[in-house]
C-alpha cells in the first residue's frame, strides 16, 4: 500500500512536471509564425475558438474605462498648439543638445549628476511623505539622504539603493494635493515642461518653494543658487542631463500615438492617478 501511494505520488509529480512545462500557451506556432500568406481558414478558426474561449469579454470591459468618456478640456486648442511647439522644440533643439552633451560627458558622470540633483530634492520628498502620513517612507528618505550625502560623496553615488537597499519614495506636492482629494482640474500643457493640470501646477509652485535648487527672494539662506540666472542654469543642467540618460524614449512613446496631444494627455493623467494612489 505504501509503495503504491509513493509511486502514485512520484508519478503525479512527474506528470505535473510535464504539464507545467506546458505553462506556455500552445498557440505558439500561430503567434510567432510570420508567414506572409496566412491561411485564412485555419487562422479564422484559431481566431474564433480563441474569442469564444477567452472567458467573458464583459469581464474585461469592466476592468477598462469606457472608451467614449469625454474629458473636460477647455484649453484643448491651446494645449494642442503647445504640444506641437514642445514637440518641435524637443526634436530640433533639446534632443540635439542632449546628444552632444551625452557625447562629451561619460555616462557614469551623467548618472552621478542625476543622483546628486535628485539627492538635493530631498526636502520635497520628505515634506510630502510627512504630509501624507507616510512616516516609514519619510524615514527611508532621510536615511537615503544621509547615506548618499556622506558615503555617497555629496549624492553623486547612490549607495542607499545599491548597498543598503533603502527604496526611494518619490512624492511631490501635486501628489499630496491629490492624496487629500483635490481633483486634477483641467489639463494644461506647459511650455518646456509639457503635460500638467491645474492641481499639478499648484503642486509645482509649492515644489519650487521646497526645493533648495530654485532661488526665491526671502529664502536666500535655504537656497543654493543666488539668483534667477543660476536657478535656470541648474534647471537646464538637470533637464539636459536627465534627457541624455533617456535618449530615444520620447520618440518611442511618440510612435505609439495616433494623435499626439490626447495621447500624451491621457498617459500623463493615468500616470499621475497611479502615483497618487500608491
Amino acid at each position: 500500500m505504501k509503495t503504491l501511494s509513493y509511486s502514485l505520488l512520484l508519478f503525479t509529480f512527474l506528470f505535473q512536471a510535464c504539464s507545467t512545462q506546458e505553462a506556455q500557451p500552445p498557440r505558439q506556432t500561430y503567434a510567432s509564425q510570420e508567414s506572409p500568406e496566412p491561411q485564412p481558414a485555419s487562422e479564422e478558426k484559431a481566431l474564433k475558438s480563441n474569442t469564444l474561449s477567452s472567458t467573458d469579454s464583459s469581464g474585461f470591459d469592466s476592468e477598462f474605462q469606457e472608451e467614449d468618456v469625454d474629458l473636460i478640456d477647455p484649453l484643448s486648442g491651446y494645449n494642442r498648439a503647445m504640444t506641437t511647439v514642445n514637440d518641435k522644440m524637443y526634436i530640433y533643439a533639446f534632443n540635439p543638445l542632449s546628444e552632444t552633451y551625452a557625447a562629451i560627458l561619460p555616462e557614469p558622470l551623467r548618472i552621478g549628476i542625476s543622483n546628486a540633483i535628485k539627492n538635493l530634492q530631498y526636502p520635497i520628498r520628505l515634506s510630502n511623505n510627512l504630509l501624507q502620513g507616510k512616516f516609514k517612507n519619510a524615514t527611508d528618505e532621510t536615511e537615503r539622504f544621509l547615506t548618499n550625502s556622506t558615503i555617497g560623496l555629496l549624492g553623486f553615488m547612490d549607495p542607499a539603493t545599491n548597498l543598503v537597499h533603502v527604496p526611494k519614495h518619490q512624492e511631490d506636492f501635486g501628489q499630496t494635493l491629490g492624496f487629500y482629494g483635490v481633483g486634477a482640474g483641467f489639463h494644461v500643457v506647459l511650455p518646456f515642461f509639457g503635460p500638467s493640470n491645474l492641481r499639478d501646477i499648484a503642486g509645482l509652485t509649492l515644489d519650487v518653494y521646497a526645493s533648495p535648487l530654485v532661488n526665491i527672494k526671502g529664502f536666500e539662506n535655504y537656497k543654493i543658487p543666488d539668483n534667477f540666472g543660476q536657478s535656470v542654469a541648474i534647471a537646464t543642467l538637470y533637464y539636459v542631463n536627465k534627457n541624455s540618460l533617456e535618449l530615444g524614449q520620447y520618440e518611442s512613446l511618440k510612435a505609439d500615438a495616433l494623435d499626439l496631444y490626447p495621447f500624451l494627455r491621457d498617459i500623463y493623467e493615468q500616470k499621475r492617478q497611479v502615483e497618487i494612489e500608491e
Binding site: F64, Q65, E67, D68, D256, A257, L258, D259, P262, F263, D266, I267, Q270, K271, Q273, V274, E275
Partner: peptide
C-alpha cells in the same frame, strides 16, 4: 502597465476617438 500606464487602455482611448 508601463510606469502606471496601461498600454491597452491607452490604445482603447485612441482607437475610440479615431473611429469617431
Amino acid at each position: 502597465h508601463l510606469a502606471g500606464v496601461s498600454i491597452v487602455q491607452t490604445y482603447r482611448k485612441q482607437f475610440a476617438s479615431f473611429l469617431k
